Amino acid sequence: MPDAFREPFAAPPTIFGVSLLAAILMGLVIPWPVFPALVQFTFGPGAIVGGVILIRQSMHEIGAANTTYDPFAASTALVTSGIYRRTRNPGYLGLAVIQLGLAILINNFWIVLTCIVAVIVTTLFVIKLEEEKLFNAFGRDYADYCGRVRRWI
C-alpha cells in the first residue's frame, strides 16, 4: 500500500527553524562573528536567494508531476526532472542554503553549526523514511534514480 509508511517526527521547515532559533539565542549569549563585511553582504544574500530558488524549483517540479510536496503524505509520482536531476532533496537543500546564507548575513557562526545538526536530523529522521516510502512505492525505478542522483549535492 503506497501510503503505509512511518511519518517523520517533524517537518524539515520545523527542524531547520528550531535549529535557527537555537543558534540565534546562542549568538545572543555568546556572539561568534567570523565573516568579514564583504562576505556578509555579498555571499549572505546570494545564498538566501539561491536557497529560495531551489525550493521554488522543487515545488514547481512536484506540482507539474501532480504529486504532493508534503513529506507526511503518499507520493503518486516519482519526480526526476528539472532540479531533481541534480539532487534528490532540493527543497531540504534549499532550507540548508538559506540557513547558511543567514549565518553569513548576520555573522553568526552558531547558525552554521546548528545547520549541520539540522541536516543530520533531516537525513536520519525524515529523508530515510521518505526513501523507504518511495522505494516501496516505485521499486526499481526509485533505486535506479538513487544510483544516478545524490541525496543532497
Rank of each mutant, 00 (worst) to 15 (best):
F41Y: 10
C115E: 07
G91Y: 08
A65H: 04
T67P: 13
P45F: 07
A73K: 10
G50A: 08
L129Y: 03
I62K: 05
E132S: 13
A96Y: 02
T76H: 13
A77V: 02
F72D: 03
A11R: 01
I104S: 06
A73G: 03
T42W: 04
A103G: 08
E131R: 02
I24Y: 05
P13R: 13
P31S: 10
L113N: 03
G82E: 09
A23N: 00
P33Y: 00
V97A: 00
A103M: 13
G147C: 14
E130I: 05
V117Y: 06
F5P: 08
Q40T: 02
L28M: 15
A65E: 10
I53C: 14
G147Q: 07
V119L: 08
E61Y: 01
R88W: 04
M26V: 07
W32A: 12
P12G: 03
A143V: 11
T14W: 08
A11M: 03
I153S: 11
L102R: 02
G139E: 03
P71S: 09
R6V: 01
S75R: 15
L113E: 03
E61D: 13
N89W: 01
S19K: 02
K128Y: 03
A143I: 05
R88N: 05
R148H: 14
A143G: 05
P31I: 09
